[in-house]
């Protein structure tokens, strides 16, 4: 579904990604784990075309996307949920969803507002509320719902559990499992290992812009020194 090969990216003059390679297969939930500043968010932005990749390849659903503008990538069915959420604060919940809407897509679950309100019942109770007057957890749900309105085949989720209360994190994990059940592929960035253990099939560990580990969640669970070296704070 998504294959990244030897990806390099810069922020200004700072070389952030040093040859990242990873893969997410259809219907899989893959976690990209790493500490603050390891390059997780940059990897997501580079895949999405928001940071132009300097070198390397990104292929999605069988086509190269590493030279395309973000809107073309989004229209091919790759959804992006940013870490800062970036809700349109002046727009209501319904309008936020409208901005994300795209036509139905073959090979991807089709969403509409009513289906999304089943997935995130809180949102359904505040359809006309402006995005700026929602709690952090509600905003996080709205930003995922907004991306799903584009009927993606695969979504990039940047730290969905960040800053959420434990009970909401739990709900979030449940929602992501539902998405997987719908056949969606997910690549998510996380620092929260336990959250990933609850939902991911496989994981990569990134540090200083390079992939240090790739394997199943079971492999990672069995390797304490790996977790110690790259993930513990």
């Amino acid at each position: 579904m998504l294959r990244v090969t030897d990806l390099h990216a810069f922020y200004g003059r700072a070389h952030i990604l040093h040859g990242v390679s990873l893969e997410a297969n259809a219907g899989e939930v893959v976690a990209l784990l790493g500490r603050n500043g390891a390059g997780k968010t940059t990897a997501m932005k580079a895949i999405m075309g928001l940071v132009p990749p300097a070198r390397g390849e990104v292929a999605f659903a069988g086509a190269r996307i590493d030279r395309l503008p973000p809107y073309r990538i989004a229209r091919m069915g790759l959804g992006y949920v940013p870490e800062e959420r970036r809700i349109f604060t002046e727009l209501s919940v319904m309008e936020n969803l409208e901005v994300g809407r795209q036509a139905a897509r073959r090979g991807a679950p089709t969403w509409n507002a009513d289906r999304l309100f089943k997935l995130f019942p809180n949102l359904g109770r505040m359809r006309e509320r402006p995005g700026g007057r929602m709690s952090g957890g509600e905003q996080q749900m709205l930003t995922i719902a907004r991306t799903l309105m584009g009927n993606p085949k695969c979504v990039l989720l940047d730290e969905p559990s960040e800053g959420l209360a434990p009970i909401i994190v739990h709900e979030m994990a449940e929602s992501i499992r539902t998405l997987k059940g719908e056949g969606l592929s997910v690549l998510l960035c996380e620092q929260n290992l336990r959250f990933c253990e609850a939902i991911a099939d496989r994981a990569y560990i990134i540090e200083k812009g390079q992939i240090r580990f790739g394997g199943t969640m079971a492999d990672l669970a069995a390797n304490a020194s790996l977790r110690e070296q790259y993930l513990s704070v």
């Binding site: 999405m48 928001l50 503008p69 973000p70 809107y71 989004a74 229209r75 992006y80 940013p82 970036r86 349109f88 604060t89 002046e90 727009l91 309008e95 936020n96 409208e98 901005v99 994300g100 809407r101 795209q102 907004r146 991306t147 584009g150």
Partner: peptide, 24 residues
């Protein structure tokens, strides 16, 4: 209108609007 929602969204964060598949 949808156009209006896109305009107001782009007024706040046009990069995000692009990442949602809108041709800026």
């Amino acid at each position: 209108t949808r156009w209006g929602a896109l305009v107001r969204a782009a007024t706040q964060d046009r990069e995000m609007v692009g990442a949602l598949g809108v041709d800026q």
